[in-house]
């Protein structure tokens, strides 16, 4: 049953990616002007322009162009860097691990805290803890990652000098030290987000009939909350974490700029300022693929945890 669900889910993901790629193509074409000019910008050499014209098959009918576009993508060909002439795929793949590391670090510290905060608040509704944590979680959601990044840079790097301001560092410990502030900045609003969803979910579950059944059986409150309620309440959060990768990816772009870290965000911004558009498009497509994969995996994990999801849908 789970296998069937997984196949179906991957099918959906593939279709989504396919449509996304098509939308990108349409978007490029909707912009008035010569696509080669738009994609390569004014600085490209004539040879490159000729090469791209050939690669995009611009002399061919539109539908055929689209097919060639798909063909290139399927071969992992996202075009070439306007300046160096290196394949975009390679350049993006070089930068991707930096971003992934940052996202992973942010998830690692913020998700558990968010879940516990939300669950704890829900288990004690209307107490001081609940109220305070509700305000805090709204508060931290309210702070956009790049604002937190700037403020923490100002406070912890420039003023207190606790953490390095720029770069990704060398060697494990140094890299870790460089990760602290950006991961903090990205994760902070994410904590509030998770906590709020967890709290809402947990409150719903704590009011459910099956929790009353357990109470009527004489089960103590602690196992009710920590085992039976949490196990059900965490399900929507799992799905949200998948969606959240897209959110974190967006925040990572800013964190990479603020802390001058390498990564896919920095790559894109630099490419936009130098009008190196193949890189921009390649990176956007790659991050979309990453996002779609993340939501798919989250749904699969959800299905593993929830017998109903496996059977239904």
């Amino acid at each position: 049953m789970l296998l069937g669900y997984a196949l179906r889910r991957f099918g959906v993901a593939a279709v989504t990616l396919f449509v996304a790629v098509t939308l990108m193509f349409v978007m490029i074409r909707l912009v008035p002007g010569d696509p080669v000019q738009i994609l390569l910008g004014p600085r490209a050499t004539p040879e490159l322009q000729a090469r791209l014209t050939a690669e995009l098959a611009l002399d061919q009918p539109l539908l055929r162009q689209l097919l060639i576009f798909y063909g290139n993508l399927l071969q992992g060909n996202l075009g070439v860097d306007v300046f160096s002439g290196r394949p975009v795929t390679l350049i993006v793949l070089e930068q991707l691990p930096h971003t992934l590391r940052l996202i992973f670090a942010s998830v690692l510290w913020s998700v558990p805290i968010g879940i516990l905060l939300g669950a704890y608040a829900a288990a004690r509704p209307n107490t001081l803890f609940d109220r305070v944590s509700a305000v805090i979680s709204v508060g931290v959601v309210a702070a956009p990652a790049f604002v937190v990044a700037l403020l923490s840079l100002l406070l912890f790097s420039v003023h207190l000098r606790w953490f390095p301001a720029i770069g990704a560092g060398e060697g494990f410990w140094d890299q870790l030290r460089h990760l602290v502030l950006p991961a903090f900045a990205i994760g902070l609003s994410w904590i509030g987000y998770i906590a709020r969803i967890m709290r809402a979910s947990m409150l719903e579950v704590m009011g459910a009939d099956h929790i009353r059944t357990l109470r009527a059986l004489g089960v103590a409150e602690r196992p009710i909350v920590l085992i039976y309620a949490l196990r059900v309440a965490v399900l929507p959060v799992v799905t949200i974490i998948g969606v959240g990768v897209g959110f974190l990816l967006s925040s990572a772009v800013f964190a990479e700029i603020v802390f001058a870290r390498p990564g896919i965000g920095k790559l894109v911004i630099d490419a936009i300022t130098t009008r190196n558009y193949p890189i921009v498009m390649g990176a956007v497509l790659m991050s979309t693929a990453l996002f779609v994969t993340a939501t798919t995996v989250a749904d699969l994990i959800n299905a593993m945890l929830d017998p109903r999801a496996r059977a239904g849908k």
Binding site: V15, T16, A20, V253, V268, A271, I272
Partner: peptide, 23 residues
């Protein structure tokens, strides 16, 4: 729904950057 789900599958800021780059 297919179109909406696809648009939602672009990470927001990345999508924004792509549009800014184009227009």
């Amino acid at each position: 729904m297919l179109v909406f789900d696809t648009i939602r599958s672009f990470p927001t800021v990345m999508f924004a950057l792509a549009v800014v780059a184009l227009v």
